[in-house]
Amino acid sequence: MRAVVSHRALLVVLFAVLAVLPVVANQYTLFVGNLLMLYMILALGLNLLVGFAGQLAFANAAMYGIGAYGAALLQVRLGLSYWLAAPCGAVLAMAIGTLLAFPALRLSGIYLALATLAFAQFTQWVLLHWNSVTFGAGGFPVPQPEFSALGMSPDRGIYYVSWVVTVVLLAFAWRVVRSRVGRAFVAMRDREMAAQALGVGLLRYKAMAFALSGFYAGTAGALYPAVLAYVSPEGFDLFQMVLHKAMIVVGGMGSIAGSVIGASLLVYLLEVLRQFKATQEIVFGALLLAFVLFQPRGLVDFLKRSVPGWSEPLHYASDSESAFDVAVADELVTGSRGGADR
């Protein structure tokens, strides 16, 4: 195998570490690890929509909140079990997310960004002010699901649930972008008119991208009350949106591996800066700006250029001739890709 460090090897190592974390880590590290996986799911979903399908939407934090409130309120208000409430929350976020595809048919770029931002602010307003349902600004506690039957604490139990869900959603995203659907997304992002001329129906694929992204954010949201045992509106505010956005920009737009790398790096930074609360937003703002200006294709592009064997299908082929891996091209031509993704 030629690949020295393939994206796949990196992901396998990362998730192996996450799998053994509960055995070796203290409760706080376990909590951060769980949060990291939630952010990976959020970044993956947002990257499918923004990075792959090219829809500049700013409603990810709102979908996250809808998933979380959906799952939490169904338990607290209607007495549903977590295992029933959580999928309902995720599906609710997916359904509402799909509806955002309709404005996206008429709006693009900054106009779509503004429309979805307005929707996100509206959601935030509902969470804050519809007291009779949402308990308002203060939020409310939510019971954690029980894992005593498996002999596990709730924290450890939900950690493993998150791990499995994250791995499944990661694999799903990976497979989707490497298929006809992923190519339709990228075609739509790169040249909308040419995509249509080749028969890619915009309504269908925009709706699919919004639905997927809503489902991912909603799933992360549905895990949220089980991890934190508490839900409040500020967990889904504008800063969250900036955070998710920063993850995919820093990691790499239009890259699955980049979503995971970006989420990992930013969660790490978040923890390092936690004691200097005021600096978090400044650092993230600066980081986002720096990447947009100097490395718009994220860390993954850097890895691609400097790590031999690092290649990812459907991610911007490198501009520079020297970085082009002729061997990879040959494998493509003969139809047998290296161990990297088979």
């Binding site: 190519r183 990228v186 075609a187 992002r189 790169d190 040249r191 008119m193 040419a194 995509a195 239009g254 299908p313 459907l314 991610h315 911007y316 082929a317 493509l332 031509v333």
Partner: peptide, 10 residues
Amino acid sequence: QLFPGMTVLE
């Protein structure tokens, strides 16, 4: 109108 995010084959 080639899609720049894809290879020629894609």
